[in-house]
Design a protein around this nucleic acid. Structure first.
Lengths: 247, 247
DNA sequence: TAAACGGGTTGACGTGGATCAAACGTAGAG
DNA sequence: CTCTACGTTTGATCCACGTCAACCCGTTTA
């Protein structure tokens, strides 16, 4: 890329963002702040970044400086091991934070990849820590967000450790549904942004198994599946399927 | 329990603890603090709690107030779902923190159970947050600890999602070995504090599978196993086993 | 309009680990 | 010292999911 083009692109990317105007403030960090505090946060979140589908937001091994809030779009995070194994560790949508794993060692431990054209707010971490020392509500909220990530991970461990294929997929779909709902979208009808292979990687299954489970759900009238377009026809049925203990 | 006995027990339990004298300070929170700061921390960590093998430190659903640092002993955390499923989400040893999952919703989301007679320091969380606002080094360290927990969970997800039984057990043993080493114990010879069933639950395997994997490791000369006493004979072999990608 | 391509579906078959069952320590209790 | 109990080991069998392979479908490229 030429220097000119880079400059132009940067000029385009570095957009002044205002948390105080952002319609995500209930999902993201600024929840429950006073106007004066919000203003401080505005100064903190200085840059927005646009990414095209397939772009890396960051890569494993890269130095950690900022966490990111998804403003629009959809991401996945994955870890790869030298022996070729890889695992999708999460999917992130609007209002969710990316990069918390990098705090521990000052280095990102996974890759974050846009699954569609997306926009994120970069939050320089040392600034965030500074502000957390000033604003108790922000500090507490940030701690809650990190803790929620730990709880979420425990849920995934549960899923991977104790559930069979159809239960895992049902759990995954119900989780997505609920997150879409929380963002004002239909909980019953949505487009998957990820491939069967990526779902499989997240759920510890092969893509063929994921595909078969989709087909079976459709046969049983739980879902209408058309490529990546999903319509949930029987939420209760999916939920019941998940709680069928084995043994 | 009679009121007298309770009072006596409480009197016994509420021991003044001094972080500044604690030999764990490299593992726990106080790393890299100034003497004056350490003194403040001393005031924060007011109580120590003793637990007998099998005691619950806290239970899922219980209100969250404090996080705990393991001073001595060994713990497991597990989540149970109403349908009867349960999963061990982690094992904690000296210097490690318990209860971070409770921050998100002010309620503990898992059970913490002592696997041997143990002692913990209770750290009232709101006090900790207060101190984090005053002491930058403590704040940063705490954030690192939370982030490390997230990274650890990703590792477990990797293990559960992509590894086969022997690889999981090898990974588990190497992890334990490394943690014992970091605490000044032999990395090659240690006692497991948990049953085969608990290992299995953590690794997403049945106890029989764990037992068979132990036997095979012993046959192959990688380990000497005598009940819960483990001696690692070939660390490199275990490590190699783990990086044998499949497919 | 065809050809190439990537993602998805479906079928046939193999296998790793679950399940079921029995026997074997080792540790407390009487 | 025996009895009982619990955790562990080991064997035989089963099955859910992985593997391999063919085919389909929608999209992009020539």
């Amino acid at each position: 890329m030429s220097t000119d083009a880079t400059a132009a692109r940067l000029a385009f990317e570095v957009v002044k963002t205002a948390c105080s105007n952002c319609n995500l403030r209930e999902l993201c960090l600024p929840i429950g702040l006073e106007p004066a505090e919000l203003k401080k946060l505005d100064e903190l979140v200085s840059t927005r970044k646009r990414l095209k589908r397939g772009d890396h937001l960051y890569r494993a091994g890269q130095g950690f400086e900022s966490i990111y809030a998804v403003r629009s779009g959809f991401f996945k995070t994955d870890v790869l091991v030298e022996d070729g194994r890889d695992q999708v560790t999460g999917f992130q949508m609007t209002g969710e934070l990316l990069g918390l794993d990098g705090i521990s060692s000052e280095v990102h431990t996974c890759n974050a990849i846009a699954l569609e054209d997306s926009e994120v707010c970069a939050i320089p971490f040392s600034h965030l820590e500074g502000l957390c020392r000033q604003i108790q509500a922000l500090q507490h909220h940030f701690h809650k967000v990190m803790s929620r990530e730990i709880v979420r991970d425990h849920g995934v461990m549960m899923l991977l450790g104790t559930m069979r294929a159809e239960e895992r997929l049902a759990g995954f779909l119900l989780n997505l549904s609920q997150r879409f709902k929380a963002r004002g979208y239909s909980p019953a009808e949505f487009n998957l942004r990820m491939s069967r292979d990526e779902i499989g990687s997240y759920l510890g299954l092969k893509l063929e198994t994921v595909s078969r489970a989709f087909s079976r759900f459709q046969d049983e009238g739980l879902l209408a599946v058309h490529q990546r377009k999903i319509r949930i026809l029987n939420t209760a049925g999916l939920r019941k399927l998940m709680s069928h203990q084995r043994s």
